[in-house]
Nucleic acid binder design. Structure first.
Lengths: 335, 335
DNA sequence: AGCGCTCCCGTGAGCGCTCACGGGACTGCC
DNA sequence: GGCAGTCCCGTGAGCGCTCACGGGAGCGCT
């Protein structure tokens, strides 16, 4: 591959005009050659193509996009690509977008609020709409997304934006009911620890626990990784050795807890029942298979794309009541 | 073939001029208001902002990109977002791209060659360069990527494009050597089955087996999922009940085999040793932890981005010998 | 010659936006 | 009054490309 190495000089962008000049034809002829249009002699076409290659010409997608504005690009902002839950959502969104012929740009904020803003700033001039998990204040969000459709996922507070609510109340209630029915009374929770305030999933847990008349104070924050889940379980069992069941913020933490339980010689589910949240496909691969409050990630992705479509078309958006994905207890081996 | 179907269905696009007219100011003032520029009265600014919101104005990212061409977007094409290996690579590429201030657009082809072409067609006018896994003929590839830098991953044949080679020969050799040292002589393989020809990883396996003087004919094709791995193991053990160790095309298949072995009452590694390929983080979560020929996905992603950078700048590209990621045997519980 | 037709190719216009510049209105100060 | 300075705001130009036209050249036919 031979490219003109711009030695020292500013590598001035090569435009269609440079190619035209080099091939001794007009812009339009170059355009015709590159786009496989009709009205062009095959010899001329080859000459243009050669000239373009020799110059290392790359058409500007902006200029092209400007004139024929037929592409829609959605920005998908997620906290962590390595967390399977988000990749499941991303895959679902990608699939839903594909049926519309839309592009999806994926961004990873690393679960840090400051990255969110940076990403948002960049994104705002790159996409036509944004779908994502955001933990930053709503004001900041609005500032960077002026006039752009935004669909939030899993944000609980009432908001000016469209938000797909994840409602796990019933699912968590069912999970606790299941544990209680199995005879458990000392149920702990491994929560998300990076947020200052307790998570909504934790609230669901305490509510469910209260409904069953059991204590819900045995909570330990966990890093959003399997190792974090393991460490948190160790801490929890250290503080409350009589715990016989744990509910976790998500499946990754649960899987770490599963592993840690094995290391501690606790048989799951006999000595320790574990129930996760998310319902990852991954949960079926571990031993024992994970019981979890499962979310339909495909529906989640599809809903988000659907709502974006409505916002973009200026049509009637889906109401908040329709923008809900409900967690459902899926029983398996671990509880 | 997926073509960009008529995406936006708005009757008429609202431009900056419409907002200007509506607010009774000039284009430039609108621009100033929207971009938080200085030379504007705060009252005017608010009036413009209100007008923009009332009209539902969204700036064109193409026009904006045209005039200040400072954004670089890389297209990352992977076969399956739900396979953790690819998300690890994607995460690595995203991270490497971020340090350069680049965007990454992720595409999922579903491991189907026809999707690759459709994706390529769409992508070619959307990104500045392409990184990806492609199984389609090179000619097709070139046709859709005219003049655009392309970096392939894991393609073995010599190619006109830059390609990052995955070299597992030594790693697989070490894996087989390890199994032989443990006393195994009947080693089977669970290969990838969707390609017509046998995989390169299979060749590495037969070569390594030959070097150790053991038979390598016990091969079963597997679907690229855990279930596929399980089914393939069952088939393999049905055909060759004396097999005591298996090497798999990748970790997902290996994890499925692990689970199936447990169901069949075979203890791993005592009754059946399992060695995977890829070295997924996921491998550490299953029981027993997976022994695998590990690839450095971060290096893979970083290399790809680095090469793209060199191709784009017109500078000297990395040579084929530098574009290699080598698999390395990482011992763990399963073998 | 004149006409119509096909095959190529070029020219003007414009997509929607930002940048550089110019300029009016108003202030303060000599 | 004159001048500089500040604060706003508007105008022309142009980013790189494609689309809609127009038009020359060559052909065959009347």
């Amino acid at each position: 591959m031979v490219l003109p190495s711009a030695a020292g000089t500013e590598p001035r962008k090569i435009t269609i005009n440079d190619v035209a000049k080099s091939a001794g034809v007009s812009r339009q002829t170059v355009s015709r050659a590159l786009n496989d249009k009709d009205e062009i002699d095959s010899d001329t076409k080859q000459r243009v193509l050669d000239a373009a290659r020799a110059l290392g010409y790359r058409p500007s997608r902006f200029a092209r996009g400007l004139v024929r504005q037929d592409t829609m690009t959605i920005g998908l902002v997620i906290p962590d690509l390595l967390n399977p839950f988000f990749t499941e959502v991303a895959a679902a969104a990608l699939e839903a977008a594909r049926t519309r012929g839309w592009q999806v740009v994926v961004y990873d904020t690393g679960d840090r609020a400051e990255e969110e803003l940076g990403t948002l700033q960049v994104i705002s001039s790159q996409v036509d709409a944004v779908i994502g998990y955001f933990s930053c204040p709503e004001g900041e969000l609005e500032k960077f997304t002026r006039g752009m459709p935004v669909v939030l996922i899993g944000r609980e507070q009432r908001t000016r934006f469209s938000a797909i609510r994840i409602d796990g109340a019933a699912g968590v209630h069912a999970a606790v009911a299941h544990l209680v029915a199995q005879g458990h009374t000392r149920i702990g929770m491994l929560d998300h620890h990076t947020r200052a305030e307790p998570s909504v999933r934790h609230e669901w847990f305490t509510t469910a626990a209260a409904a069953h008349g059991i204590e819900a104070g045995m909570v330990v924050g966990a890093d959003q990784t399997a190792d974090g889940g393991g460490a948190a379980l160790r801490t929890l069992l250290g503080e409350h050795p009589d715990v016989t069941a744990v509910f976790t913020f998500n499946d990754i933490i649960a899987i770490g807890a599963l592993r840690e339980a094995r290391r501690l010689g606790r048989n799951v589910p006999r000595d320790l029942a574990v129930i996760g949240f998310d319902g990852l496909q991954l949960g079926a691969l571990v031993e024992p298979p994970l019981t979890s409050v499962a979310l339909d990630t495909r529906q989640l992705g599809a809903l988000a794309i659907e709502q974006v479509a409505r916002l973009l078309s200026g049509g009637e958006a889906l109401a908040a009541d329709d923008l809900v994905v409900r967690g459902e207890l899926r029983l398996s081996g671990s509880a």
